[in-house]
Design a protein around this nucleic acid. Structure first.
Length: 818
DNA sequence: GGCTCCCGGGG
DNA sequence: GTGTACGGGAGCC
């Protein structure tokens, strides 16, 4: 007798059982319990396109490969009618006994004379399953089958069939945030082999806890003392086991917390078998590490925010404090972590505030995860990929997997990933990008900003741009070619392409949501807003995807055509604006900055309307805003045109700043200080003279050595053994000398150095701070390589040159603007 | 100008 | 895991 069971799948994986692959999906059942759903009915396969419909079925069935005690063979081959880049093709769907056999069998047949090409042989089995069965993680599904008994931390259900069940989505997964503090002496590299974890905090719904293995007097109820680090690691495992989170989240936990915990656990031979199948936590060490747990979704919320939200945030730093402040208006506790090791070693009485700090980091992480969950959920639902993977994908991968899923629905075969050689070739391809109208540096009044709503996506849609519509035979004579002077291309005017269909679908879905969202409030609004934003992010990424060297649906000609049309339309706006009497200040890609120059705001809006009447398809020029004053920079030219840098003040007095980089740790303190101060003076006080005086004073102070030596120390971390360096930077030279003096120096050591006076190359003038007397540092180096570069572009904005900064005599420019 | 190296996040 | 991983700036050579 079959049971029915409803559940929200979170992720899928597979296991080989009795020579057959069995999919296991972990998720939350309708009754609230965690569940594992097994499906053994899905078979691995790939496609082979035979030449001239030669029958290769018999030959395929003879293949048999023995490897590592497993046998791989073709179970059957099915002839199917598919589409490939706009053309109908006969393909063979080649079924293989095991997933691991797919690439092996494919390798054998790819070179056969009778085979023209092979496809879709490199798609992870569990991902293939979700796509083919149209199972969308987080949506409610119904399984028919029965509960079985199997070693597992959760109930196991063996399914005979699985299907969508209504439109419900898991909107309140059980989230558990955690954070560790480690013993980490001031200025030493973080070293998981050497230094213990001393605190561990958790935060979830109605749950907060800090574990610490030294005792002190406290009245805080969530602090729990344990006797050792080993016991603390045991608590890590047990807390997760009893809390039963759907999502375990940390801040940079892929790169720090979990690998650290794993290293320490290995030391004590503690098994971190928190997987719902009792498997251990897995640290995948690639270029960027990632940590996975079977059945529990590990969300590194830092990674998600940096990858997906990054561009839309004001902050340029992604540390927890800056991100929490911008997204939550909350901050980290203000404690000095540098003091923690000493306090840990001596006076335990002060440990309490570090425990509070530790918990607060988990609280912030939890709140960030909850805040991002609507967006994460919507991306998962649009792309059809589990949270764990969405968390670790960049935009081009999100686009690609979205297209892969749609390809299945549209009966399209996916093109292959480029070979290494092909990637190298593609990397060399360049093309003309967007049009940039350079602003004259200076201060301006009454600025109006317009931009094209989703310029590239609407061009791709309106002009039917895609790899399957380019240069079609049927429209060679009639189609309108791209406005590209260097090469002639056109796109089919009879048949809508695959990619334009997908893009227009994303755009119109978004427009519909924008329409209904006006009436919504609260939670419903938040989800719809997250959805429209996710749709926009995805649509905006298609153009870049077409020109991305790793893309399956790569087409540099399509990318070129898109920018060519983009330049065409923005020029049209600029020309018309000038004809109508506006002053064009600045334009970049899809936006135009005008000054009213005597005309009114209403005139500007009417102007946009007149443009819109002539635009094709879904293209639209939008009124972005009005700014009473602004400062524009024509920054240093890069290889592909100017960088975008400007600051404007809106009517409510808020400043909008674009393109000013922040300085990093391998800059001296003096450079950081000066940049911060100068930005403050100019943007808040509008006193350019004062900013200039300030920098001049700093330069004078450097020359007369009034700036203390601590402010000119540069910190750089040694990445490998000194001998392994082929190119000796200043920090390597200093490291060598430290080693000669008997200091223990190796990978991870932070090398501090000061550049001193002389004519030699920098390396030979770099010394350790204690070797340098107060007046020995090279003032010119710090002025020219540190202070000036950190503020030069800011001063260019307001009309001063590097030379002005260096001159001792005062000058006045742009006086009396404000 | 090409090559090599470092940074980020975390403590 | 039927896959793969970044991009920008500074200094050396």
């Amino acid at each position: 007798m079959a049971d029915r069971m409803e559940f929200f799948p979170l992720d899928a994986t597979y296991r080989v059982q009795d020579g057959k692959a069995v999919i296991s999906m972990y998720g939350r059942a309708g009754d609230g319990r965690q569940v594992c759903v097994l499906d053994g009915s899905f078979e691995p396969y790939f496609y082979a396109i035979p030449k001239d419909s030669i029958n290769i079925g018999e030959k395929l069935e003879k293949i048999r490969v023995e490897q590592d005690n497993d046998a791989y063979f073709v179970t059957r081959a099915e002839a199917v009618l598919k589409k490939f880049l706009g053309k109908e093709v006969f393909a063979l769907r080649v079924y293989v006994n095991l997933p691991a056999g797919v690439p092996i069998i494919r390798d054998i047949i790819k070179d056969w004379d009778s085979v023209s090409s092979t496809h879709e042989f490199d798609i992870p089995f569990a991902r293939r399953y979700l796509i083919d069965k149209n199972i969308i993680p987080l949506n409610l599904h119904q399984a028919v089958g029965e509960f079985i008994s199997q070693k597992s931390r959760v109930q196991v259900f063996r399914a005979d069939s699985i299907g969508q069940a209504g439109t419900d989505t898991l909107h309140n997964p059980r989230v558990l945030a955690f954070d560790i503090e480690t013993y980490s002496p001031f200025d030493m590299a973080i070293d998981a082999e050497k230094n213990p974890i001393i605190m561990l905090s958790f935060y979830g719904e109605n749950f907060r806890k800090v574990f610490v293995w030294k005792k002190f007097r406290t009245s805080i109820d969530y602090i729990e003392f344990v006797n050792s680090e080993a016991e603390l690691i045991g608590k890590f495992r047990d807390t997760i086991d009893t809390y039963k989170p759907d999502i375990l989240t940390g801040y940079f936990s892929d790169g720090f917390d979990l690998p650290y915990i794993k290293t320490r656990a290995d030391k004590y031979k503690i098994k971190l078998d928190i997987g719902l199948d009792f498997s251990e936590l897995r640290v995948k060490s690639a270029r960027e590490t990632a940590v996975a747990v079977t059945g529990i979704t590990h969300l590194d919320i830092f990674k998600f925010i940096k990858k997906v939200m990054g561009n839309s945030l004001e902050t340029t730093s992604y540390d927890l404090n800056a991100v929490a402040f911008e997204l939550l208006e909350e901050k980290k506790h203000d404690v000095s972590l540098a003091d923690l090791p000493n306090i840990w070693d001596s006076s335990h009485d002060n440990l309490e505030k570090f425990c509070e700090y530790n918990l607060n980091d988990s609280v912030l992480t939890y709140n960030l995860a909850v805040k991002m969950l609507p967006t994460i959920t919507e991306i998962v639902k649009i792309v059809g990929i589990p949270i764990y993977d969405v968390n670790r994908m960049g935009f081009s991968q999100l686009v690609e997997w979205y297209i892969m899923k749609q390809a299945q629905q549209f009966n399209e075969i996916a093109p292959n990933k480029p070979s290494y050689d092909e990637v190298q070739k593609r990397r060399l391809q360049t093309y003309q990008g967007a049009f940039v109208y350079e602003p004259k540096p200076g201060l301006y009044k009454d600025i109006v900003v317009f931009d094209f709503r989703s310029l590239y996506p609407t061009i791709l849609g309106s002009h039917n741009i895609g790899p399957d519509t380019i240069d079609c035979k049927c429209c060679e004579e009639t189609a309108k070619p791209t406005p590209d002077e260097s090469e002639r291309h056109w796109f089919c005017s009879k048949r809508k392409g695959f990619i334009p269909i997908l893009i227009e679908d994303l755009i119109t879905r978004r427009m519909r949501i924008k329409e209904i969202i006006k009436e919504e409030h609260g939670e419903k609004f938040a989800f719809l807003d997250a959805r429209q934003n996710s749709l926009k992010l995805l649509a905006n990424s298609f153009y870049g995807y077409l020109g991305f060297f790793g893309a399956r649906w790569y087409s540099i000609e399509c990318a070129r055509g898109t920018t060519a049309w983009g330049r065409f339309y923005i020029h049209k706006v600029i020309d018309r604006a000038q004809k109508e009497g506006f002053l064009v200040l600045y334009s970049d890609t899809d936006s135009v900055f005008l000054t009213l120059d005597g005309r009114t705001k209403n005139d500007a809006e009417a102007f946009a309307e007149s443009i819109n009447r002539e635009l094709p398809g879904l293209m639209e020029l939008e009124y972005e805003g009005f700014y009473p004053s602004g400062i524009f920079v024509s920054a240093k030219m890069g290889a592909f045109g100017a960088k975008k840098k400007y600051a404007m003040m809106s009517e409510d007095g808020a400043l909008k700043i674009k393109g000013f980089e922040t300085v990093r740790r391998n800059w001296s303190l003096i450079a950081k200080d000066v940049q911060e101060k100068v930005l403050g003076i100019i943007l808040k006080e509008h006193d350019t003279e004062k900013a200039l005086r300030y920098v001049k004073n700093i330069i004078t102070d450097l020359k007369s050595k009034k700036i203390p030596i601590e402010k000119v120390i540069i910190h750089t971390q040694l990445q490998k053994e000194i001998l392994d360096y082929t190119s000796k930077g200043p920090h390597v030279a200093v490291a060598q000398r430290l080693k000669n003096k008997g200091r223990v120096i190796g990978p991870g050591s932070i090398i501090k150095y000061v550049v001193t006076q002389g004519n030699d190359i920098i390396r030979n003038r770099s010394k350790m701070p204690e070797e340098v007397k107060e007046n020995e540092y090279d003032a010119d180096y710090y002025i020219n390589n540190q202070v000036i570069p950190s503020v030069e572009r800011i001063f260019n904005v307001i009309g001063y040159t590097k030379e002005d900064l260096l001159e001792t005599k005062e000058q006045t420019k742009l006086e009396g603007f404000f």
